[in-house]
Design a protein around this nucleic acid. Structure first.
Lengths: 217, 217, 217, 217
DNA sequence: TATGAATGAGCCTTCATTCAT
DNA sequence: AATGAATGAAGGCTCATTCAT
């Protein structure tokens, strides 16, 4: 009777069955939230999609807002985990950079739900994310790795000096993320579809050129 | 979504008083929509903020969705109007490029509500914007102008050859827009505020370098 | 647009139609609250009984709790108004006392909903009533009048000296109110119905005797 | 409301451990019910407070309503047990009366939860109590004892003749119970706290006087 | 042109109760 | 004897929209 009988929070103590239900709710919430945003999502719909009782959603997550935060944290963690596996700091500088750029475009392209979550959360002025204890910690290793790559490249004479790692990382994110995030309005404006494989490959080529072109000494 | 027979759409036929009311509703809606998104905004709140009766909102715009589209169109038009005034095609290529890059960052920074609207609309998969007859037409002149600038720069030997105008334009938008759009989550992640004047100036310097560095032959 | 468009509070500014709706809601709420208490009452039921839309209940009263307080205040005011009309301070002391005692029994008997409201509110530890600005003011005149009557009776040699007006008033309330409030459990316990006219008349005779017997010098 | 076939009602057949659990549930329910009434109480909360699994509550009591009735019966029995120990019929009439009056005030004052239960049950029109087989039987001895005391006092010339025992008993209950039951609203109305020890002592003095003053021949 | 009042559907949340182990 | 997980039916409250004047 340690936890109040109406809310279950810690995940460790759960049975396999409970964990499965919890997971189905999270999966369903990710889809729903990404599609309709937080305000536009319906708790009923999430529960139905999860094949779970609505009450369990509240038992596991307490409220729609807590559920949102949990989904958001997991989305960040998932992306960082894949990015970490690139092992940029163990690759030659040029390849590291190319891979990082391509990965960011391709990941956002494969995971438009991640983009949708981020946009929503920025509408909220990061009100939920700023309550997270996990996410900020995920990103300092990335910055360190990028700093190292830039230094190695500069030492080897293939990158320019004095590049700010955070600015560059934001730019790399921007070149991919913005394209995916705004693909619908951009397609409308430019009158050409942007989410075909051909279009994405073209984009990848462009931004690779873009970053490497800039980094030339 | 056909306009009801009692809906008043054209603005020309309105009296001065009516036009003022209509305008106040639009202004209020812009603020409210940008702050809370479309699903999160309340028709009551918009009317109250406009000092207008809710009924008038329906008389002038027919529905919340139509109001959203009108607000969105005006936001696009306002930005394009300022951008047009840059007269990039009458400036020397280098200066044109610097100005265009700086303008896009500064405009989005000064108009976070524009960013918020765009993000929302992309969540909607541009469902409203794609019904607009005005917006696409706004952007073809921009692409033409940029194409000309790139050609002039290449001819003068200061820009590389073979740059795709649309890709570059998207990249320029991305470098500024993404920074502003995601400033809240980025601030949280990197643990440093990104919307101070100093931070924005640093960003401007970085992206100017970035674009010009890339464009070097 | 003085009042927010979603909540209407002051009663003075309302149209006749609105006032009628508001009143129907109050009447329905009184019945429902008295029958089932606050926690047991259903907002849907109140609205239905009032022939009003649920939304109006919230427009006029803001919440179930505010509605409860309003109903409570009106119940107190109604009783005090009738009590005031007894004009105890302009009657001979003995008659004043008899009338006051009888009135309190009869009123609570005729208005079991008043008793029910009071009991509920005491369960709440007067949480709502204590936010009322109106009710306490109603009762000081009563105490003053009773003090005068006691003094006049004592001076005339028909009442004992040194009677505390507040204690006596509470006792008078008690002798009638408790009987009515607990008529159901008392009937069960003593195995005899207590809310027949005959039983009430007997009770009236008893408590008249009781009070006057005590007041003898 | 018939006990389900799996419900365990009789207490005799239970093991010591089971009896302890059952008792903890009853204790917790008393507190919760008294604080929030039946409609306002939560089965979850009662189980949590008892340190028991919710399921056990249903195993032992069948439903929230049955639990309510059990709690109510026990509260009545506890009061009558203490009252019985006064042995009013073996005391001199005057002292018996004084003790009875004081006891009723003091008991309700020490046991506000009893008062709260009674009020709730009267809101229910004694719907649950009337199904009890135990409670009515508790009270006939009380009336007999009081009748005897009154007769002895009248014979001794210290009490008036013709006093109805039930009416008097109700009045004695009223003078104490009403004060305690309504202490919150009365405190609010009269602007003075009524549950201090001093206030209760003053009340005790008043109602002693009151009853004895009335009983004078 | 403008307004106050009304509406019905739907949303987030909570409840008493039962199932399976 | 005890438990964790699950459920269906509300419950309070809010929303975009329309009516009547």
């Amino acid at each position: 009777m340690a936890a109040s009988s109406t809310t279950i929070r810690a995940q460790g103590e759960l049975s396999a069955r409970a964990r499965a239900t919890r997971q189905r709710i999270l999966d369903a919430a990710l889809v729903e939230f990404a599609e309709k945003g937080m305000a536009g999502s319906r708790v009923d719909e999430i529960a139905a999609r999860a094949g779970a009782n609505k009450r369990m959603l509240y038992a596991y997550f307490g409220s729609k807002e807590e559920l949102w935060l949990t989904v958001l944290e997991r989305a960040y963690a998932a992306k960082r985990e894949e990015e970490r596996e690139l092992s940029v700091d163990s690759l030659p500088p040029l390849e590291a950079m190319v891979r990082l750029v391509a990965f960011n475009l391709r990941y956002t392209s494969r995971h438009p739900e991640f983009v949708a979550l981020l946009n929503q959360e920025n509408l909220h002025r990061a009100a939920y994310l700023s309550r997270s204890e996990h996410v900020p910690a995920l990103y300092s290793p990335m910055l360190e790795a990028l700093t190292t790559v830039l230094a190695r490249g500069a030492a080897a004479g293939i990158f320019r000096d004095g590049v700010d790692a955070m600015q560059l990382y934001i730019s790399i994110l921007a070149l991919g993320h913005f394209y995916v995030a705004n693909r619908h309005t951009l397609s409308t404006i430019f009158g050409t579809p942007l989410d075909t494989e051909a279009a994405i490959a073209a984009r990848e080529a462009h931004i690779s050129d873009f970053v490497l072109g800039y980094l030339r000494p």
